[in-house]
């Protein structure tokens, strides 16, 4: 565990969230900030491994948007989010900056916790749907033993 672990987790959570989720959970006007990097759309090359475990190969790209901000207090926030939603990247970078300030606990409760729960619920629902399609084999009785 390192100091960056909670930040890694929230940056990932914000990156994977939908833009509408961030807007709904955090409708607040942002505090004054400067752009270090305005939302910038691009791609990341996704790699796989031959045979799942061997040599890496390039599978294809995924769209991303990145942004960086600095709040008046000096806190710097970064975002690398999935998809091409510039507003989502902006909101994620601002939240990343704010979560490193005294606003952390409030925002963790209002934004991160519901996002984490929504993601966990979606995963669990999918895993339960999958479990419902698990095959129960039974052996056919053969002969007259």
């Amino acid at each position: 565990m390192t100091e960056s672990d909670p930040r890694r987790a929230w940056m990932g959570l914000l990156a994977r969230a939908k833009g509408v989720q961030l807007d709904r959970l955090w409708p607040d006007a942002p505090p004054p900030f400067d752009w270090l990097r305005r939302p910038d759309q691009g791609s990341m090359m996704v790699q796989g491994r031959a045979g799942a475990v061997g040599a890496a190969f390039n599978l294809g790209e995924v769209t991303v948007t990145r942004a960086s901000v600095r709040l008046a207090c000096g806190s710097v926030g970064h975002a690398l989010v999935q998809g091409l939603d510039a507003r989502k990247a902006e909101r994620a970078a601002l939240l990343d900056a704010l979560l490193q300030t005294q606003a952390h606990d409030d925002l963790a409760a209002r934004v991160l916790k519901p996002l984490r729960m929504a993601e966990a619920e979606a995963r669990e629902a999918r895993a339960k749907r999958a479990a419902a399609t698990k095959v129960d084999f039974f052996t056919m009785a053969r002969g007259d033993a």
């Binding site: 910038d40 759309q41 691009g42 791609s43 990341m44 090359m45 996704v46 790699q47 796989g48 491994r49 799942a52 890496a56 390039n58 599978l59 790209e61 995924v62 769209t63 991303v64 990145r66 690398l80 995963r123 999918r126 895993a127 749907r129 999958a130 399609t133």
Partner: peptide, 23 residues
């Protein structure tokens, strides 16, 4: 469209053994 997107980098190889399975 892909050719208009700058490439920011490369991901770590995906870990398909950790996949949330649907099938």
């Amino acid at each position: 469209y892909r050719t208009t997107l700058p490439r920011f980098g490369v991901t770590l190889p995906v870990q398909t053994d950790k996949m949330d399975l649907s099938r």
